[in-house]
Design a protein around this nucleic acid. Structure first.
Lengths: 113, 113
DNA sequence: TCCTGGTTACAAAAATGTCCGTAATTTACT
DNA sequence: AGTAAATTACGGACATTTTTGTAACCAGGA
């Protein structure tokens, strides 16, 4: 966009993590090396166009490392970088927080017909 | 509506937090009650149309509580709910993680001219 | 021909924005 | 006194930008 580096780190993180896929991909990569097709299987609803695009974004943000092997059929592996590894538990915290609030949300939807 | 509750809590949280404004608004609300116009001043770039929209989303997600007072000029106050209060430190963790990686990112951009 | 990991061109959907209108009261000006 | 703003928190009609998706194509070896 306009500002290369905004004053606010929250804005900066969310520029990377916003959207449907980035956090999910990080989560699936936490178990170790995955190939492109593995990641497609992990989340069947992502199109391969988007997957390629999101992986490049994560790579540029320094969260994911791409390793391409020579030869055919092609083979490309993706791993979390150390920064990516550190991020995963923070995402899991968010997920836990959400689940802790789940009963309250069910309560709310019952109260608002 | 398709799925009331998706199988994956990560997807669910990000549906709420994705985008430029939700996390910022939560962060600004952590200091206590704010009025609509206060929040506009806190982040000058948000349009009031979007601000109203995002606040309603956060309200429906149970993170923010809206209190409208009768009389004119209108007066509406926004506060974090308990769930919202619990979420703020998790967002701050993300910001801290980002800042911890900032030196490495500067290194990268120097290495790629 | 199929496989893998992409790419491009195009299309739909979602997020974000601008501009204008509204309500009832206070203030400011003539 | 009479009237014209200003104020506050929105809502609706658009326009634009970003994200996400679909479909087709490529490379080069088994």
């Amino acid at each position: 966009m306009q500002t290369l580096v905004s004053a606010c780190p929250i804005e900066d993180v969310m520029r990377v993590l916003s959207g449907r896929w980035p956090t999910l991909l990080l989560y699936y990569l936490k178990d170790g090396t995955k190939r492109f097709s593995d990641l497609r299987r992990d989340n069947a609803t992502v199109s391969h166009r988007i997957l390629a695009h999101e992986l490049r974004k994560l790579e540029q943000a320094g969260l994911v490392m791409r390793t391409a092997f020579p030869g055919y059929p092609l083979r490309v592996e993706y791993d979390l970088t150390p920064a990516g590894v550190q991020l995963v538990p923070l995402i899991e915290n968010l997920a836990d927080w959400w689940e802790a609030g789940a009963p309250a949300r069910r309560e709310m939807s019952r109260a608002a017909p």
